[in-house]
């Protein structure tokens, strides 16, 4: 039963990472842009949700606000900064978006102060659900559900809508679809805002069970990059697979390594070694995947 629960936890953590990685891989894949500031959009979503939920008393209004605020911030950033970077190399993108992190973090601190904000789940999500003998938080089930819903939404968006067809066409050949009369500039703004909105939504939901504070986006950002690189950049399916793989590896590593190591060494050192190893595990996974398949699991061979 414990193993099953940990398995579910891994799934849930993977979905949490997917919420963050989906927007990142969309932007990465469509525009070829490395956006380190994706974590800042996640933070903006969480802060917007906390502020609105505090003012109105409604978590769901806060979630709406997080989508809107992050998408608006994304559109603004795209218009002011990002659109000048598409034709530049990755280095310039890294530096510019690194600069955006500094501005967003300190700007947020200037507006909201230095202390973490209050944000909690609505009553409908804060209970537990019984799954055949296993008591499981309903929130975590909701995250799994939302992750799946967003995956389906993105597949539909990319495969079944005009917007998706244009995006994929733009991915394949920018000049061509420009020549066909599609306004590629506004298309990119829309895609970037969509990616930002997804990050903001993730920030609001995950922020409700974590600490809403300045810098909260950074640890998740690195993991989100790990996820999309393992999956293969630009692939929604890859991001999903990568997220689940990372989520499982991390959770099961933390849960099972101490006991596993205790069979070959004394208990006291096993606990400490296992903890160190567990924190390195996702990076070992990533290096192993890339050495085996240099463009990720679902990446285009090139």
């Amino acid at each position: 039963m414990l193993i099953f629960e940990q398995f579910l936890n891994g799934l849930q953590y993977g979905m949490t990472l997917f919420l963050m990685a989906a927007g990142l891989t969309l932007v990465f894949g469509v525009m070829g842009l490395i956006n380190l500031a994706h974590g800042s959009l996640y933070m903006i979503g969480a802060f917007a949700c906390a502020a609105v939920a505090q003012a109105t008393g409604s978590f769901w209004l806060g979630v709406g606000a997080s989508l809107a605020a992050a998408a608006a911030a994304g559109a603004l950033i795209e218009l002011a900064v990002i659109r000048r970077l598409y034709h530049r190399d990755h280095l310039d993108q890294v530096l510019a978006t690194f600069a955006l992190i500094l501005i967003a973090s300190e700007g947020t601190r200037w507006v909201f102060g230095s202390f973490p904000l209050y944000l909690s789940l609505p009553p409908s999500l804060s209970g537990t659900v019984s799954l055949g003998g296993l008591v499981y938080p309903s929130f975590r089930l909701a995250v799994i559900g939302l992750g799946l819903a967003i995956a389906v939404f993105l597949f539909w968006l990319m495969r079944g809508t005009r917007l998706g067809i244009r995006i994929r066409a733009g991915e394949a050949d920018r000049e061509m679809i420009g020549a066909l009369g599609v306004d590629i500039r506004s298309l990119y703004t829309v895609v970037f805002a969509l990616g930002a909105g997804l990050a903001g939504l993730a920030g609001a939901l995950v922020g409700a069970v974590q600490s809403v504070q300045v810098g909260m986006g950074e640890p998740v950002l690195i993991l989100a990059f790990v996820v999309i690189v393992i999956g293969g950049i630009g692939s929604i399916g890859g991001a999903l697979a990568g997220a689940l793989l990372v989520g499982m590896t991390d959770t099961l590593g933390r849960a099972l390594l101490p006991a596993a190591l205790a069979t070959i060494m004394p208990q006291a050192s096993a606990t400490a070694v296992a903890a160190s190893l567990a924190s390195m595990l996702v990076y070992i996974l990533m290096a192993a995947v890339l050495v085996w398949r240099p463009t990720g699991l679902f990446g285009v061979r090139g």
Binding site: L2, E5, N9, R140, V206, S211, T251, T271, A275
Partner: peptide, 20 residues
């Protein structure tokens, strides 16, 4: 005795161990 990671954000695995 559980050691978590520095800066860890998700504690589902640890909470499951506590329950167990």
């Amino acid at each position: 005795e559980i050691f978590t990671q520095v800066g860890q954000t998700d504690y589902a695995a640890e909470i499951a161990q506590i329950r167990d």
